[in-house]
């Protein structure tokens, strides 16, 4: 393929910001050496072997489990929401989308901090509960709080792609299905839903990927002891200083995401030609 010279800046950009970091991570993951240095590296699979320790596999399992749960919950909540929005008239639709997106204008960290003050021991919700004469609840620093944080933060990423697919479905297809004898439920199961699968796939991708690798939400809402795969990487890089092991975990994570995406893309490709990512 011939490339125009105008594409060079982009290629340069991609090399600096994508290819080089990836190459470095790959390099670190397959080597051992002194802390932070790039000299004196020895090839080794130790980093990967180390990950097979049950305590790390546990972390991986918890991360995947939580990410799957949050993806499922955002889907169950997001699909009807996307449908409701898509059914509205354009004016109302835009307002609803705006309301959905406005929280995203705020800093991600702040948004998550806000939940601290809501869920905390002396937080808003417990304040009301105690005022009503009940004992305060343990709302924070557990799985449910992390899950809540994920669902809250990633819901728009599920709703938007599904919405944009739904809103583009030709209304006459719905009418054609009704015309051919399909009731509301059959119209949904045989026409609307199959046609919205590309949106669902994109939604799953957009939620699952950040959910499985998040470390901020788990740090803030899960507490200091809470460990997800993202926290593990963060810990290895920033506190332990073992870039090699940190890189290896990242590579394992990437491979895992790659496989997941390939599987979801298979579903997509069965029906529609050419999926988003593949």
């Amino acid at each position: 393929m011939r490339m125009k010279w105008t594409s060079y800046p982009y290629i340069l950009w991609m090399i600096i910001f994508i290819v080089v970091p990836l190459a470095l991570i790959l390099l670190y993951s397959f080597t051992v050496g002194e802390e932070g240095g790039i000299t004196n590296l020895r090839f080794s699979l130790d980093n990967f072997r180390r990950f097979l320790d049950p305590k790390y596999l546990d972390v991986l399992w918890i991360s995947i489990n939580l990410a799957l749960k949050s993806t499922l919950i955002t889907m169950v909540l997001g699909y009807p929401l996307a449908m409701i929005i898509a059914k509205e008239k354009p004016k109302k639709r835009n307002v609803m989308i705006l309301l959905l997106v406005i929280p995203m204008w705020m800093n991600f960290l702040l948004r998550t901090y806000a939940w601290l003050t809501l869920l905390g021991k002396n937080g808003f919700i417990n304040y009301i509960i105690t005022k009503l004469g009940f004992a305060p609840l343990n709302l924070i620093y557990n799985d449910r709080a992390v899950l809540l944080g994920m669902v809250y933060n990633f819901l728009p990423f599920m709703v938007l792609p599904i919405y944009s697919v739904l809103v583009k479905i030709d209304k006459s297809l719905i009418e054609a299905a009704e015309d051919l004898g399909a009731n509301k439920f059959e119209v949904f199961s045989k026409v609307t839903f199959p046609l919205s699968i590309p949106g669902i796939i994109t939604g799953i991708t957009m939620v699952f990927m950040p959910a499985v690798s998040t470390f901020v939400i788990s740090r803030l809402l899960g507490g200091g002891q809470y460990m997800l795969i993202g926290n593990l990487v963060e810990q290895q890089y920033l506190w332990v200083g073992d870039w090699h092991f940190g890189s290896a975990i990242s590579i394992i994570m990437m491979a895992f995401i790659l496989v997941t995406m390939a599987i979801t893309a298979k579903f997509d490709n069965q029906k529609e030609g050419g999926g988003g990512l593949w």
């Binding site: 030709d170 006459s172 297809l173 009418e175 054609a176 029906k271």
Partner: peptide, 11 residues
């Protein structure tokens, strides 16, 4: 009905 733009199911 035969619709104006046919409205065939693309999937």
């Amino acid at each position: 009905t035969v619709f104006q733009k046919y409205a065939l199911f693309p999937h």
